[in-house]
């Protein structure tokens, strides 16, 4: 089954999280939205997929390739942009190696001592991340994930863990309203998930994130953590959002907090007192229908 929708309803960060957690292999395509004049289930205008805007590929949950449709993403341009090739070098190589695939070109450049393997890997990695961070700012447009579809073999693919990408992407989400909607109540606390050691392996956190992580304890509310670290509500929300999206922390209700989170609502309705034999009778009845 395809995974498709519109990033206004299911954000790119959420998509990356889904692909990471489900260890998916395939290609995510973002399209220009074509107005249909129809409304979707939430009353917003339906957008049909138009021209592709970007393609991002994944292998077992790792980011391996990203390209914007309107950007020259070949190896020479990537190395030039990263400062590994001068403009003049890039021009000459472009002329001489017009139809050479990226992988073959990489070998030629390494053999000619223009660049090292690590130059190529780091430049492609940076290019891939730049593309991702660019499209994380997109707020609207259809997308589709195709299982098993990968870029052609001549493309160099460098696997990148998505957790760091998600954290960085989340850092770039500036809209205070969205963050506020996500975490309206700062009285929640934080705890580590199961196997935290495993999840933190290879993760690069900022100083601010480490400061928050150092206070993670179900007894500390997020508000208290923010106060201890002299952080604003928006800053703490942004950091907690990133950490939670990457699966590094979980939200927990502090002890004594009411079940209901809606102010002004009456106390929770009590479940009826029902005997086990009543439930068993219901099960037998439904089985027999």
């Amino acid at each position: 089954m395809p995974i498709q929708g519109n990033i206004r309803n299911f954000s790119t960060t959420q998509l990356l999280n889904l692909i990471n957690l489900a260890r998916k292999t395939g290609t995510l395509t973002f399209f220009e939205g074509v107005r249909t004049g129809e409304k979707d289930a939430m009353g917003e205008e339906k957008m049909a997929p138009g021209k592709p805007r970007a393609k991002v590929s994944f292998n077992t949950g790792k980011l391996t390739y990203a390209a914007l449709d309107n950007q020259d993403g070949n190896l020479i341009s990537v190395l030039n942009k990263a400062g590994k090739l001068t403009d003049e070098q890039a021009r000459i190589i472009r002329e001489r190696a017009k139809n050479t695939a990226d992988k073959a070109l990489a070998l030629l450049l390494m053999n000619a001592n223009y660049v090292s393997q690590s130059d190529i890997v780091s430049s492609i990695q940076q290019h891939t991340l730049d593309v991702i961070y660019n499209l994380l700012t997109w707020a609207e447009g259809p997308f589709r994930f195709d299982d098993g579809i990968m870029p052609t073999n001549d493309r160099i693919q460098v696997p990148i863990d998505l957790e760091n990408v998600i954290i960085e992407g989340s850092r770039r989400i500036r809209e205070a309203e969205k963050l506020n909607e996500y975490l309206p109540n700062l009285d929640f606390a934080l705890k580590f998930p199961e196997n935290p050691k495993e999840k933190f392996k290879g993760i690069h956190l900022s100083v601010e994130e480490w400061r928050v992580v150092s206070f993670v304890n179900p007894k500390n509310s997020i508000r208290q953590i923010a106060k201890a670290n002299n952080m604003s509500d928006i800053e703490i929300r942004r950091i907690v959002y990133g950490l939670e999206q990457a699966g590094l922390v979980e939200l927990v209700k502090p002890p004594g907090m009411e079940t209901t989170t809606r102010p002004g609502r009456p106390a929770a309705a009590r479940a009826p007192q029902v005997q086990k034999n009543v439930v068993n009778k219901l099960i037998d009845k439904i089985k027999s229908i």
Binding site: Q4, G5, N6, R8, N9, F10, D40, A41, M42, E44, T259, T260, T261, R262, R265, A268, A269, R270, A271
Partner: peptide, 25 residues
């Protein structure tokens, strides 16, 4: 949840949380 309408997922999650708050059933 309508599995074919991702635009309703956020609403479904919100409804779920609202009902969870009404009663611990």
């Amino acid at each position: 949840v309508d599995s074919a309408k991702p635009e309703t997922f956020r609403e479904a999650k919100s409804i779920l949380e609202t009902f969870r708050a009404y009663a611990p059933t």
